[in-house]
Design a protein around this nucleic acid. Structure first.
Lengths: 221, 221
DNA sequence: ACCGTATGTGACCGATTAGTCACATGACTG
DNA sequence: CAGTCATGTGACTAATCGGTCACATACGGT
C-alpha cells in the first residue's frame, strides 16, 4: 500500500523506480536488498522512498503484489488451447506460460519464485494467497484432466501440482542458463525470433517428460 | 581451507561451531548471514572465528564443501539397488536419496541447494564442481537406462538431468511442508518410524510421476 | 506577487556488519 | 618458577544499513 504520492509520480519516474527496486529485490534476500542502493542507482534522495512507502517491508510486499499481478496479466494475454485438443495441449500451455514469463520477465519471475519458495520473511496472508492462487491454476488443469480421463487418476494431486509448478519455474531457469551464450539478446527484446521457432521445440522435450516420464514410450502424440 | 587451529579444536567445540555456522548460512543469503550472530550464539569471541578462517568467504566455502562431502558420505551409505531390477528401481533409489537426505539433514540440504541454484555469490570453480558432480550421478543413471533400453532415448539428457535433480530436491521440501504437522519429531530422530513404512509409500507417488508422467498409464509395475 | 501544499533532499541517528589487534589466558617445557 | 607458543578475547574501526526530519524547492490558485 504505497502512498498517493507514489501514484502521483510521472509514469517515467514510477517506471524507473519500479524497475530499479525490482532489480534490487529480485536477486537477493529481503535482508540483503538495500534501499540505499536503490536510491543511489536512481540518483534520488532516500527520503523520497519513505514518502512513497511506509518502510522496507511495505515496499517489498508491494513489489510482490505488483509482480503477481503482472504475471496474471501476462497469462491472460496468451490464449488457452481449444478444449477439444486434450489435456496434453493444456499441459503444454502451462509449461509455455512458465517458460515465456521467465524468459520475458526474468526479474519478476525471480521475485515471485523467491517470495513463494525462498527464504522470504513475513508469513503474510498475502504471500499465502499468492502461493495458493499460483498453484490453483495448475491444480485445476490437472484435476480436469483427471475428470476427463486423460490424466492418471492415481497421481497425488497436491504433490503433482507442487512438482509441476516447480518444473515450469525451474525449466525457465534451465533454458536461461542453456541459452546463456547471449542472454543480452533475449533481454533486449530479440526474443521474438526465438519464441515461435526453436523455443517451442526445446520445451516440447520438457513437455514430453512431464507427460510420459522417463519410461520408454509405446504410443506417440 | 580453515587454519590448523580449527582442526586442533576439541570435537565438541568443532561440532558446535559447525552446527551453528550451518544453521546461520542455511536459511539466509550469504550477505545476510552474520558472523556476529554466530559468535553471539556460541558465546565465543569474534576473534576466534578469524583464527579458524581467513574471512567470511573462506568460512562459507568451507561449509559448502563440508555439506557436499556429508552428502556424498550419506549417499554412499545407502546401498544401490540390484542392477537386475531395472532402472525403475534406480530412479527410485535416486529419489529416495534426495528425500532422505533432505529430511535427515535439512540444514545441509538447504545449504547445498542454495549454493547450487540460489543467489550464491562466488562463481567459484568449487561451486561449479559441486554442481557438476551432483548432476553427474543422475546423468549417469539416466544415460545407462537409455543404453539398456529402459528409458526413452528421445529425452533430452541435459534437461532431464536438471529437472530430475530439481524434483528430488524440491520433493524433499514438499514432504517437509506436508509433514509440518510435527517437524520436531523428524529432527529429533524419530524418523526411523516414518522411513521404511509411510515414507516409501509417499514418494512412490513421486516416482510414478517421474517414471510415467501425467498420462494415463496402460501398464503397471 | 504571495501563499499553501505537495514533493524532494541529504545530513544525521542508532544499530549492525566484517574484520583487526593488542592483550589475556592456558598449557606445556626446561 | 620462567619462558614459549597456541588459543581466546572483546573493544575498536570504517562502512553500511533502515529510518527520520528540518529544510529547500516546485507548483497551482487567488
Amino acid at each position: 500500500m504505497p502512498s498517493q504520492t507514489f501514484f502521483n509520480l510521472s509514469e517515467a519516474k514510477r517506471k524507473a523506480f519500479l524497475e530499479t527496486a525490482i532489480e534490487e529485490f529480485a536477486g537477493r534476500d529481503y535482508e540483503s536488498a538495500s534501499i540505499s542502493r536503490i536510491v543511489a542507482t536512481l540518483g534520488i534522495a532516500k527520503g523520497s522512498v519513505y514518502q512513497y512507502f511506509e518502510d522496507k517491508r511495505d515496499l517489498y510486499l508491494f513489489l510482490i503484489d505488483y509482480a503477481a499481478k503482472e504475471r496474471v496479466a501476462f497469462v491472460s494475454g496468451v490464449p488457452m488451447p481449444d478444449p477439444q485438443q486434450g489435456f496434453y495441449r493444456y499441459t503444454q500451455w502451462l509449461l509455455e506460460m512458465g517458460v515465456r514469463f521467465a524468459l520475458e520477465h526474468p526479474r519478476l519471475n525471480q521475485l515471485i519464485y523467491q517470495a513463494m519458495f525462498g527464504t522470504a520473511p513475513f508469513r503474510d496472508d498475502m504471500l499465502q494467497r499468492l502461493r495458493d492462487s499460483s498453484l490453483q491454476l495448475i491444480r485445476d488443469v490437472i484435476a480436469q484432466g483427471i475428470a476427463v480421463g486423460e490424466i492418471d487418476p492415481d497421481i497425488d494431486l497436491d504433490m503433482t501440482t507442487y512438482l509441476l509448478n516447480v518444473i515450469t519455474n525451474e525449466f525457465g531457469n534451465y533454458l536461461a542458463s542453456k541459452l546463456a551464450i547471449d542472454p543480452q539478446r533475449l533481454l533486449a527484446g530479440d526474443q521474438a525470433q526465438l519464441d515461435n521457432d526453436s523455443l517451442r521445440s526445446v520445451y516440447s522435450k520438457a513437455l514430453d517428460f512431464v507427460w510420459h516420464g522417463l519410461a520408454k514410450r509405446s504410443t506417440a502424440h
